[in-house]
Nucleic acid binder design. Structure first.
Lengths: 198, 198
DNA sequence: GTGCATTGCGCAATGT
DNA sequence: GACATTGCGCAATGCA
């Protein structure tokens, strides 16, 4: 059959994006690689992600939660994040200074909870870690999506080929059946026709 | 298990997510529905398709949060408020002051472009519009991804079925061929064996 | 509790 | 100019 090496390789890669119980090792040697897709694919997104989400109130609620957190002053400072990496709009951040000393206490963030002052190096550190994690996670997601798309494409191609194959087989079968019926009717007349012609 | 009707319906829906030239009627000569995936998948997606969740009225409090984080140095100034969205207070921010006087000129926001002060109602309006657009776009993306995943799953199922079908046909064919060869050798012996038994 | 992973969200830059 | 996409950081939350 169409043992397209390209196909299997991509599917292989795709499968690796789903660390769950996705791969079925027994299928790798088969001609047409048919991995297990499983429900894993649909779980993650369908639930907890927008689509099914009820009304809009949840959004509001979520929003209200974090809003009192002092939008300005903080976080203007001490970033110097070493892992700025792809950050683009903060090239001049190197000159950033700590304005917090100018802020009135009343203006400061409500940081009532365990004094999570946004000035603390610890805070910045955590933020930076999270930012890294976020980037990583999103890269992963992007890759996963891409692989899924490629996989869909290839499955479709494969499908077409399979269907074509079925068409061939069916036709061949019909021919043989016809021949057989002919012989059945007329008895053995010796006609090796359609054997290899189809 | 899954019924074929469901399959085609989902694929149908999936196809509608790709307003490009996704469907190619010329290839659908074979029995099963086999849509064209084409490269469109991997490229981009555009076009809009009014989702159900159009109403932006449900979300109101979201803008309380207003400017989140102030990219470090720039734009730390010129706003006095956390931007009370379109229709409400600027509550806690009322005590906010202008720290810009403390900022070194080099630290000031680059707001040189037509003075895009974040206080302006026009700015808030634009932001809000964009936020709506972003939500819409992301919903769409989520839907698209979900659809692609479902499609991949279904294609895979279909694939398995096709392969099984091919197996059947092949075996049947072998049987008939065998029968034919037998007859060929021994002449008509009358043996309607594998006709319908496979 | 600690730490990374996910996810929704708003902002801004950029594309159409 | 309006809307659509996209990368990014923040915060909440999930999870090991």
């Amino acid at each position: 059959m169409m043992s397209d090496s390209r196909v299997s390789s991509v599917i292989q890669e795709w499968a690796s994006s789903y660390p769950g119980q996705v791969l079925n090792p027994s299928t790798s040697n088969q001609a047409d690689s048919t991995n297990q897709l499983s429900q894993m694919d649909l779980i993650q997104y369908s639930q907890s992600q927008g689509l099914v989400r009820g009304g809009g109130d949840d959004r509001v609620a979520e929003q209200i939660m974090g809003l009192s957190y002092l939008p300005y002053s903080t976080s203007c400072i001490s970033n110097t994040s070493s892992s700025g990496s792809t950050n683009h709009h903060q090239g001049h951040s190197s000159t950033a200074q700590d304005f917090s000393s100018f802020l009135l206490p009343t203006l400061r963030a409500p940081m009532n909870k365990r004094s999570i002052s946004k000035d603390s190096a610890e805070y910045r550190q955590r933020r930076e870690r999270n930012n890294v994690a976020v980037r990583k996670s999103r890269d992963k997601a992007r890759r996963r999506i891409l692989l899924t798309q490629q996989r869909a494409l290839q499955l479709q191609e494969e499908n077409q080929k399979l269907q074509m194959r079925i068409g061939q087989l069916t036709q061949e079968l019909d021919t043989l059946k016809h021949i057989l019926s002919q012989r059945h009717l007329h008895g053995a007349e010796d006609g090796a026709a359609g054997e290899g012609s189809i």
